[in-house]
Design a protein around this nucleic acid. Structure first.
Lengths: 412, 412
DNA sequence: AGGCTTTTGTTCACGACTAGAGCATAAACT
DNA sequence: AGTTTATGCTCTAGTCGTGAACAAAAGCCT
């Protein structure tokens, strides 16, 4: 769905440029040029022309492969030292983390800051930091992805019920200096996107990703795309009444599954105050010590998973955030609660339940991927070409290739 | 996602052939050639070559447009009188209906037969009917789509809990004479597919389709594709515990939503026997007379819809089968049950709830669409070309065009 | 009725693209 | 040091879509 087909000769070239660049990005800039040529079913001559063009436009930069078996040594195309950079930020209930990402997925953390949970407190300093880094990096910045712990509507309006955020206009609060495109999305959807690209959902046709933080988020991943497109209003499995509790949820509905899973539920189970994005340490303490609270949490998680497995039949269920720890500490409670809710035909071949390969980094990485998804299109590359008219200005090719600093050791 | 992009000049031509043919199919063979040329952004010359090629391969056949405004009159490309035919069958709990479909979607019903609800009873005669029609139509048959009222696993294994079908091997029971490809799918998923192509979900990014028959089926439609791909094991929203009843379901799970919605639920509500695919007339009588049973059914439908709207935020919810009648007879009960389960942010802009545009025909039409989806690909057209080597064997072009019977008045 | 206008179908020269073969290159192997 | 092997580069051939010029067929106007 994402990559549309070419219909003219011109679009054909553009399309192959995108395919090559995406292949480099998706493999983490680890495949050799000859490998890529084979994978993409290109003629060696075609690959030659494409790589040369992309290198001249500062999109790719080739380096010698560290080892070979025989024959003429091949090169590894990776990010250009002056190439595109995606900014990504993960805004949690109590802190945010900002990072710069190169093509291929290398992440450089630019800053981490706690905040007070209010919209202004969370986003004002962030906007300044983004503006500063953008000024420093210039035209290299090709977009900003923002992960947030609540439903995101079109235009970047965000609601986080347990923080009291009501239709918070994120683009506005970030100020006018935010780069374009500005992609605001749900943290769970982003985590799922990252899992689909670089984690345990890679190559999986239908997967289910669940992100457990203060709240519970869940989203279906189909053919590498989280449902609701990572910018939409999906990813809200946490607000389905799957566990049969009639408790009113802060979102305004009744009986939401998310009431029984996550840090807030742990705190409530032991009688502590919860909500407002406070109490991460206490929750982690409960998680580490209270067998009973953990079992209740894991059981509720299992019942909901079973319901979703019935409906969607995923091949794999992945857990991130506190999910992996719940599974390790109370795996039997989880699976035991699953069983009775499963359809008989699902019990024969239940999906694997796995812990995320990316841990707490998923949301940030997904925000990055969404920026590169927008960039790695015919339109995105056309924009880059236009904003970099001075392709080969001063140095001959041989010199620039030989003397430039290798991409992956260079600070961003 | 379905149509992959071309990478060589040759694939480019194949890709444009598919695009043109699909455009003809999707518009119901009602658009003129000049309209199609504009819609697909083709040069007139290119369209000329493409249409001529497709006509020579017996895929298209042009007829004069009935009316014009001014200028040279244009033609309307439609199905070729010897063109491809998709066979489609809707197998319900108590009867099946077989049809032949031309490119563009014109349906000719070939037969309707009640059966006894056993796998053999349902499928043996059907297999014979398919084989007979296939022999008659020869190479024109490009596939068979089979809609069934239960979960379908890969390979065509079907379970229908309330009929006692356990891993019924549909391809095997249909016998060896079934055409290829043989696409076995869930009736709800097919109905949703048809709704997405020719009904109220056309052009909708995220839609939810619910099919109410004896049982309840539900599936999400994203960008024109039902989740689980119309042949998968999705489309089972009916087996999520959304209504909070702890009743054991025949599927082996507990508290399934589908226990409370549909003909079986209506019969149970008034104390009649249910299950086994019997009692369609009684259920319709209950539906027409028992206010209370209908309200209970509609309320359960509404509660489940709200839960799914929370999770997926569809733009439109469409109902087929008995759904439209439930909505007409007890719309307030339905919406009233929806309200408290909805998240506050969903209440502001709730999705439209609409009745299907295709009625009970949806599953059959969806089965057809799935066959044409497989045919309208570069591979499918290549196979057709190979199996029809005698392209222009006896008659000059002018004569064959002038004298051949118009496609849409010709019996199949 | 006859000429003009409008729209569409057809043909062809042109530019852009990829495939594939032949050659050059650079390493490992013998 | 020569051979083998795999890769990169260059050039020709074939295919495709474009767009302009031309032909065709209808409605419109006088």
């Amino acid at each position: 769905m994402s990559v549309n087909g070419a219909t003219t000769s011109g679009e054909l070239r553009a399309h192959n440029r995108v395919r090559l660049l995406r292949a480099v990005h998706d493999c983490g800039a680890r495949h050799t040029r000859s490998q890529l040529t084979r994978d993409l079913r290109l003629a060696r001559g075609t690959a030659s022309v494409l790589v040369a063009g992309l290198a001249e436009e500062r999109l790719l930069h080739e380096e010698p492969a560290p080892e070979h078996v025989r024959g003429r040594p091949t090169q590894i195309p990776g990010p250009h030292p002056d190439g595109p950079i995606a900014l990504a930020v993960d805004v949690r209930e109590d802190a945010w983390e900002l990072a710069a990402c190169e093509l291929g997925g290398r992440v450089t953390v630019l800053g981490v800051r706690p905040h007070d949970g209010t919209p202004e407190g969370a986003l004002a300093l962030l906007g300044e930091a983004v503006a500063a880094h953008r000024a420093r990096l210039g035209h290299r910045v090709v977009g900003l992805g923002v992960a947030l712990a609540g439903p995101v509507r079109h235009g970047g309006l965000v609601d986080i019920a347990h923080l009291g955020w009501r239709s918070v206009d994120v683009p506005h609060l970030l100020g006018g200096a935010a780069p374009s495109p500005l992609i605001v999305g749900n943290d769970t959807a982003f985590a799922a996107l990252a899992e689909a690209r670089r984690g345990r959902l890679r190559g999986v046709r239908v997967g289910l990703h669940l992100h457990v933080d203060f709240d519970l988020g869940g989203v279906l991943v189909v053919d590498g795309h989280p449902l609701g497109g990572a910018t939409g209003v999906g990813a809200e499995f946490g607000h389905m009444p799957l566990t049969g509790s009639g408790r009113p949820c802060l979102c305004g509905a009744i009986g939401c599954w998310g009431m029984d899973v996550g840090a807030n539920a742990l705190l409530r189970h032991v009688g502590l105050a919860y909500g407002g994005g406070r109490g991460r340490e206490q929750a982690e303490h409960v998680l580490a010590t209270s067998e009973q609270a953990v079992a209740a949490n894991a059981g509720a998680l299992g019942r909901g998973i079973a319901a979703l497995v019935n409906a969607h039949d995923p091949e794999v269920v992945t857990l991130s955030g506190h999910g992996p720890e719940l599974r390790e500490r109370a795996g039997e409670a989880l699976l035991g609660a699953c069983e009775p809710v499963l359809m008989a035909i699902r019990r024969e071949r239940p999906p694997r339940i796995e812990s995320s390969a990316l841990g707490w980094r998923g949301s940030l990485l997904g925000a990055m991927e969404s920026v590169f998804d927008a960039f790695l299109t015919t339109e995105g590359l056309e924009l880059w070409r236009k904003s970099h008219p001075d392709q080969a200005r001063d140095t001959p090719d041989a010199q620039s290739v030989t003397h430039s600093t290798p991409a992956r050791e260079r600070p961003v």
